[in-house]
């Protein structure tokens, strides 16, 4: 018995896909801001700030994203703060993205040779000016391709938000599969949905890697 037409299914999945895209975008925009802040702490010349940033990065890189979402969602409600699943998912993914981006970007900053620091120091630039005018412009160029590459991980990572009840693509797929008894078709379409979001990003990342390598 099956009351759903393929059109119904596609429409529902498209709706889920939209939320997956929104969640990815939110995580990425806020995660970039968070990543910049963590990066600044990580590169500071104050041991306490560096320790704080390191600990943050280690915790979020060393635990599964799913546990992070559980802790944000259930932990906050245990503490008396009731937040909707979408907010918990956005918050959890933002923290996760911040940690990874901070580490990716730190790698790019570290890849700038020490001679660039010395050259700019000898020209009387202070640390902020060195960062702003010499180090970051070069590191940024290096960072674009791996950053876009990481966005693909974030898009796929949003699927765990389904477990705390946020109705995005995977959750929509699960509900449809239960209702239609066509798991193979439905999950195939769900996978195709993620691919639709991720493949252009992968292509773009590869394109950037090629062009930015030559460009200055």
């Amino acid at each position: 018995m099956n009351d759903f037409t393929l059109g119904d299914i596609l429409l529902a999945l498209l709706h889920g896909l939209q939320w997956t895209a929104i969640l990815s975008l939110t995580a990425f925009v806020l995660g970039s801001l968070g990543g910049l802040i963590i990066l600044a702490l990580r590169l500071a010349h104050r041991p306490a700030l560096v320790w704080l940033a390191k600990t943050f990065i280690e915790v979020f890189q060393g635990t599964p994203l799913l546990m992070q979402l559980f802790i944000v969602f259930f932990g906050l409600s245990l503490g008396g703060v009731e937040i909707p699943p979408w907010l918990a998912a956005a918050l959890g993914l933002t923290l996760y993205t911040s940690a990874y981006l901070a580490e990716i970007w730190r790698g790019c900053v570290n890849a700038i040779p020490n001679t660039q620091w010395e050259g700019s120091a000898a020209l009387a630039l202070n640390r902020y000016q060195q960062m702003r005018h010499v180090i970051l412009p070069q590191a940024l160029r290096m960072a674009i391709a791996p950053t876009v590459g990481f966005l693909v991980q974030v898009v796929k990572g949003t699927s765990v938000a389904s477990i705390i009840g946020f109705v995005e693509l995977t959750k929509t797929g699960g509900m449809l599969a239960n209702a239609t008894f066509e798991p193979f078709l439905i999950y195939g379409l769900v996978a195709a949905g993620y691919f639709l979001l991720c493949y252009p990003l992968s292509l773009y990342s590869r394109h950037l890697e090629r062009t930015l390598h030559v460009a200055r």
């Binding site: 001679t115 660039q116 010395e118 050259g119 700019s120 200055r216």
Partner: peptide
């Protein structure tokens, strides 16, 4: 410097 250290 020996290695010029220009900003590329």
């Amino acid at each position: 410097f020996q290695q010029f250290n220009l900003f590329p």
